[in-house]
């Protein structure tokens, strides 16, 4: 056993398999009862395939991370992390009582929070989507609005079941997200909670109604949260930037086979 290989330290790779290693991007996954073929409501772990396609298009190798709260060892295999969308975050994690409209899965929260904290400690590039951005804000010491329609008086962030709200966001000039998005600021949202307090992160994007749409690490690490769903358009501006950051980290850590 090599005690120097803790969570977050990249594993040596033997390069036995030929070809250059692509950055490995872990995507946190849902656990839901799924129905297909002969199977009815079979407990399954999954992510919408949009995420996989967005990572693959960007030149990353996607692997899915089912929730597991034993340890964060899996980080040693990753070059980047996507915190995917999903249900609400347990309000107990930011010291609030649950709103009647709040639905959370404690085991997913536990597994993802453990992974997220370790990823932040290790400086792993990470893109946090929708619920992922909310979890990121909570991990940074912040808190959430539990039901935006009450706070804002409108439903534009979640117009109807299965329908994305499309609107434009305003980004802070000079921020990472402003640079990545450029002139096209149209975004696709589907959420009923929102970030109330971003903790130690900086809010760098907002909707017209003031709802935070993007948060990032003020210290310059690739830690980016977006309230919308960039995977819906396989948005290469964001997934491309994540994979680039992951590739840079591979090279710095000497884990890219092409460099050996």
């Amino acid at each position: 056993m090599d005690p120097s290989r803790g969570a977050g330290s990249p594993a040596p790779r033997a390069c036995d398999y030929g070809g250059a290693m692509r950055p490995i991007i872990g995507i946190t996954s849902y656990v839901v009862p799924a129905t297909w073929g002969v199977w009815q409501n079979l407990p399954s772990t999954l992510v919408p395939h949009d995420y996989v396609e967005a990572v693959t298009l960007a030149g990353g190798r996607a692997i899915l991370l089912p929730p597991d709260d034993r340890d964060a060892d899996v980080l040693r295999a990753l070059d980047g992390l996507v915190l995917a969308g999903g249900p609400d975050v347990d309000p107990a994690l930011y010291g609030a009582a649950p709103h009647p409209a709040t639905e959370f899965r404690a085991e997913r929260d536990a597994g993802e929070m453990l992974l997220l904290r370790a990823a932040l400690d290790a400086g792993l590039p990470l893109l946090a989507v929708c619920r992922g951005m909310q979890l990121l804000a909570v991990a940074a010491g912040g808190s959430l609005h539990q039901h935006l329609p009450e706070t804002l008086g409108h439903e534009r962030h979640r117009p109807a079941p299965g329908v994305y709200g499309e609107h434009e966001a305003t980004f802070t000039p000079g921020s990472r997200i402003a640079d990545l998005m450029g002139a096209d600021r149209a975004i696709h949202c589907f959420h009923h909670q929102g970030v109330a307090d971003a903790g130690s992160l900086t809010v760098t994007g907002r909707a017209d109604d003031g709802t935070p749409e993007a948060v990032e690490d003020p210290n310059g690490g690739f830690v980016l949260g977006v309230q919308w769903h960039p995977e819906y358009r396989r948005d290469q501006r964001l997934f491309g930037a994540l994979v680039d950051a992951a590739r840079t980290r591979m090279k710095e850590n000497g884990t890219a086979c092409a460099d050996r």
């Binding site: 799924a34 129905t35 079979l42 772990t45 999954l46 992510v47 996607a62």
Partner: peptide
């Protein structure tokens, strides 16, 4: 291609 709750989507998935 799977269904869960009211959603229908293409997913990367595996039984738990």
């Amino acid at each position: 291609h799977i269904q869960y709750q009211r959603n229908e989507l293409m997913a990367a998935m595996l039984p738990m």
